[in-house]
Amino acid sequence: MKLEKLDPTVKACTSLVCVILLSFQYLVSLNIAVFVLSLLLLLTCTRARGIQVLKLLLPALVAAFGLFVTGYFHGRGTRAEDLQKIAAMPYAVRAAMSTGLYPALQISTRLLAYAGFGLLFALSTDGEAFIFSLMHRCRLSPKFAYGILAAIRLMPNMVREFKSVRLAFRARGMQLRWYSLPPVFTMLVNSIRWSQCVAMAMESKGFDGDAPRTCSIVPKLRWYDLAFFSCWITGILVGMCLLRY
């Protein structure tokens, strides 16, 4: 069973609901469990390769480490509800709480848990499939759906063009910094031009956006979509009830 087969909208909803649930808790163990489980699922049940995972994971780790350091040195201290539970905690945890290690872990592992969901979604979902699924499940209008797909297709052009615009500017004798605005302006002109051209091309191919059109691919909901959704939600709810720190 590969996660690529799951309905993208269900996957997106799962991660949205889980994230909202996770934002109401401060359990380091649950965060880590979610993160580890996501990575495990990613490596065993998707076609994502390790190196891909690492590439996307890296910025998440950097951000989490940043939050950890910030939380450690500039944390708000122990929360009131945590103080009530403090008696039941082992010595190691109590020691950690007094130094700010625990709040630092709370905030940084939460980000990791989110990143786990994000990666699980990003690396097991095809962009087009996601948009089509949104069109059927969430009534995303075809105008928006195909507009988004067309715009995404221009991204490689944009990166290439941005480089050549910057070269052209420097060849004209302009000193450019990375934040220089004139190339951005030129790129905006290009982008708007491109969007007009693509819009006309799509319209010329009979795309209306409001008129009815046929759909040759209708994604179906299957039992495992709902199973995936309910397993995650139940898992997190159970974790929130049973886990202590």
Partner: peptide
């Protein structure tokens, strides 16, 4: 229906 000048700006799918 129309065929446009710029080959890069006519498609919305991959």
């Amino acid at each position: 229906t129309m065929l446009f000048q710029d080959p890069d700006l006519q498609f919305c799918m991959s």
